Simulated scan of single mutants.
Amino acid sequence: MTKKQERTIILLLGALQGIGPFSTDMYLAAFPSIAADLKVSIAQVAYSMSSYFVGICLGQLLNGPLIDRFGRKVPLLLMLGVYTLASVGCTMVTSVEGLIMLRFFQAIGGSMGMVANRAIVRDVFPADRLAHVFSTMTLVMGVAPIIAPTVGGFVVVSFGWRAIFWVLAGFAFFVTLLVYFLLSESKGKDRSISLKPQAVMADFYSILRNPSFLAYTIVGAMNTAGIFTFISNAPFVYMELLGVSEQTFGWIFGLNAVFFVVGSQLNRWLLKYYSSQTVALYGLLVQAVMGVALVACVILNQLSIPILVALVGFYSLCLGMIGANAIALAIRPFTKNTGSATALMGSFQMGAGAVASAVCSYFYDGTAKPMVIVMTGVAFIGLLAIWAGSYRKPVTA
């Protein structure tokens, strides 16, 4: 593969991966507007985020076996179509229940992008370059979480919250065209892969029995839980507790995303000198320290905009260092059922995000305490998992 072909694949997969951040981050600034229009509370609107996480979780379990059986490209195009139609549907809802349901189907379609791009990377790049490639993809898709909240705030103010979902539909359609015209099939159909429920469950079970996969999947899941705990609670903490405007929130949230991208690129440099496991371990240690500092600030009633931006910023920087390494270490042992392995890992990740988001909503007390406690807790669980993983040798499957 030439350097030009490699760059094209990374750029395309980065755009595909950008659907996820746009889907979650872009409508955050619209939470107050959605709540007012649909005559519900912001906490109820937040359940549309939880339903999206649940849809991502279940959708990956569906889509993983599909791309192992039918190849990568055709299932990807079909599910991008599902995402686009669900996005259009979100522009027409008249109740929060309708929004919650359509966000679920939007996630079912969008989850294919997460499964397919990881599987394609595993198809076309050697195992020792996976973490580096995932970090490069983060640089490409890192534009999404930086600009999405800002664009979302502008769209809400200028055109109303429903216009956000028209933008998402348009972006998905554009990515669909890129996939159709520029992406070559990286792995053909495999008729030995059965889609019967019993066979699919047997494949998933065999993947879970790989101790290295399980340990690093937990690390990745806790990483995602930390990200989405902040994402789903940031509108309330910044706009209601700290009183920032919708547009200012977009800029502040974008700054946190800059930290995430910087962390992913710092990871690329560190990987020249240290193993993926070592980089992820120290990222988790710093993340845990930032979490403890956040808890202390909330308990002592010292939380302010500069303190929150700084501590969450360095927490986010560590997220960028941990994520790519956790994915690479988890899927490295697999060659045949790569789609199912990436789907299972992604499902764990989004499931953890959904649970963390729901836990924060359940323990809502009008303060930032639920958010910072969960963010700290998942960092410590990740530390335990990576410690366990350090004693496990990967078993190729």
Rank of each mutant, 00 (worst) to 15 (best):
G254C: 04
N223E: 13
N267Q: 03
G250S: 11
Y274C: 08
D203A: 08
L255I: 15
I227F: 15
S206F: 08
I227C: 11
L177E: 10
R162N: 14
S192T: 11
K189W: 11
V262P: 07
V237M: 09
S212I: 02
T150L: 10
I218S: 04
S232P: 00
A169E: 15
T136Q: 02
I227A: 06
A144Q: 03
F204K: 04
F230Q: 09
I146C: 00
T278R: 11
R162A: 10
Y216E: 05
W166Q: 13
L168D: 12
D190E: 07
T224H: 13
S186L: 08
N256T: 01
G243V: 07
M141R: 03
V261M: 09
V143E: 00
E185R: 00
Y180F: 11
F204M: 15
I146H: 08
Y216F: 13
P149I: 02
R162P: 03
V262Y: 00
T217Y: 10
L266H: 05
V261Q: 01
P235L: 06
P145R: 01
L270I: 09
S264L: 12
F154H: 11
I231R: 09
W161A: 12
N210Y: 07
A215V: 09
V258H: 09
G250R: 11
S184L: 09
F259L: 07
Y205E: 14
M239T: 10
A199I: 01
K187V: 06
V200Q: 14
I252R: 04
V155W: 00
F181L: 12
P211K: 14
N256A: 04
P197D: 14
Y238P: 03
L183Y: 00
F230S: 14
R191P: 05
E185F: 00
Q265L: 06
F260L: 15
A202Y: 07
V140T: 02
A144S: 09
W166G: 09
F213K: 08
G254Q: 08
M137G: 02
V244T: 14
S158M: 15
G243A: 13
I227T: 13
A225P: 05
V244Q: 10
G243W: 06
I252D: 07
V157C: 10
G153T: 03
L271F: 05
A144W: 02
K187I: 03
Q277T: 09
P211Q: 08
A257H: 01
F236T: 14
I146P: 04
Y216R: 05
M222A: 11
W161G: 08
V155R: 00
A221T: 11
T278D: 07
A221D: 12
F260K: 01
A215I: 06
K187C: 11
D190I: 06
V175S: 06
G160L: 12
F171N: 05
F181D: 05
I218R: 01
I231P: 10
L208N: 06
T138M: 15
W161P: 08
L270H: 05
F165M: 09
